[in-house]
C-alpha cells in the first residue's frame, strides 16, 4: 500500500513514523503510515475528515495513551529513539513534543499561571516573570495582556486564548509542537496572527500542523503530507508527502489533486 508517491525526505528528520497502524478497539483507523517530519520546518497534515490526521498527530506525543482502547503498532521514532519503547516515559515525551489543540483549552487560572504551570511541574529554575514575558512575546500576545496577567485566562477572546495555549506550550521549551487545527475556531485576523507566529517559531521549533484549510497549508507549510482513506475505506494512511509547493502544483496522486482542488473531502 505504501506508494511511490511518498518521497522520503533526505534532510534532517526529527520524527519518523514507520509502518504505523492505529486501532481504536477492534477498529483499525490507520495502516502502513510512513512519514518523516523535517527538523525546523513546518509540515502540514491535510486530508478529508476522518482520515486519521488527529490520530496520527497523537501518535507523536503519545496522547493516544490517554484514549481508552487506542493501540499503536509500528514504529514512531524521535531522534531515532522508539517512542513506544517500554522504557520510555510518556510524560517526558510530552515535555519535548508539545501540543496545541483545535479548541483553545486554557486552564481556568490566571494568564500568568497558565504559562507557569508547565514550567513549574517540570522543575523550571529560572525567574517566572521572565519566562512569562518571554513566552507571551514569542506568542505575539504580550502587548495585549501585559496589564492583565493576573486576570482569568477565560476572559480572553478565542484567538487570544489560542495564542496563550501556544505560549503555554513553548514555555516548557519543547523541540516539536504538534498543532491540531489550531485556527479552525478563529476568525481570519486571529488566524493570520497564528500563521505569522508559526513562521517565527520555525526558527527554533519543528511544527507539525493539521489543517483543513488548503490556503493555510499552502501559506504556512514547507512540507505537506496528504492523508486519505484506503480503497477499502476502513482505514487511512499517508498517500503522498513532499514539498508543499510541489504537492500543490504537481500532485502525483490523483486523489491528492482531487482533494486540493476541492473535488473531494
Amino acid at each position: 500500500m505504501t506508494s511511490q508517491n511518498i518521497v522520503q525526505f533526505d534532510g534532517p528528520t526529527i520524527l519518523k513514523a514507520e509502518n504505523v497502524a492505529v486501532y481504536y478497539g477492534d477498529k483499525q483507523v490507520l495502516r502502513d503510515v510512513m512519514l518523516s517530519v523535517p527538523t525546523h520546518k513546518i509540515t502540514a497534515l491535510i486530508g478529508p475528515s476522518g482520515s486519521g490526521k488527529s490520530t496520527l498527530l497523537r501518535c507523536f506525543n503519545r496522547m493516544n495513551d490517554l484514549i481508552r482502547g487506542a493501540r499503536v503498532e509500528g514504529q514512531v521514532t524521535y531522534h531515532d529513539q522508539d517512542l513506544y519503547d517500554p522504557e520510555v516515559d510518556p510524560v517526558e515525551v510530552r515535555r519535548r513534543i508539545g501540543m496545541v489543540f483545535q479548541k483553545p483549552n486554557p486552564f481556568p487560572k490566571s494568564i500568568y499561571e497558565n504559562i507557569t504551570w508547565g514550567a513549574r511541574i517540570n522543575g523550571y529554575r529560572g525567574t517566572m516573570d521572565e519566562l512569562v514575558e518571554r513566552s507571551l512575546r514569542r506568542a505575539a500576545l504580550w502587548d495585549e495582556v501585559k496589564d492583565r496577567l493576573h486576570e482569568n485566562a477565560l476572559s480572553l477572546s478565542g484567538g487570544q486564548q489560542q495564542r496563550l495555549c501556544i505560549a503555554r506550550a513553548i514555555a516548557i521549551e519543547p523541540e516539536v509542537i504538534l498543532m491540531d487545527e489550531p485556527a479552525s475556531a478563529l476568525d481570519p485576523i486571529a488566524t493570520l496572527k497564528i500563521e505569522e507566529l508559526m513562521h517565527e517559531l520555525k526558527e527554533n521549533y519543528t511544527i507539525l500542523i493539521v489543517t483543513h484549510n488548503m490556503q493555510q497549508a499552502a501559506r504556512v507549510s514547507d512540507y505537506t503530507a496528504m492523508m486519505m482513506l484506503t480503497e477499502d475505506r476502513n482505514s487511512a494512511t499517508v498517500i503522498e508527502f513532499g514539498k508543499t509547493q510541489a504537492i500543490f502544483t504537481h500532485p502525483r496522486d490523483r486523489r491528492t489533486e482531487d482533494y486540493i482542488t476541492g473535488r473531494i473531502g
Binding site: V91, R94, R95, G98, F107, W117, G118, I121, C165
Partner: peptide
C-alpha cells in the same frame, strides 16, 4: 472538560499533577 486534562497532559503533567493541580 476533558480538554483541560489533555492540555495539562500535553505539557508533561503526570496523572497525579493533572488531577490535583488542574
Amino acid at each position: 472538560p476533558v480538554g483541560l486534562r489533555y492540555g495539562a497532559f500535553a505539557l508533561g503533567g503526570t496523572k497525579f499533577e493533572v488531577s490535583t493541580r488542574i
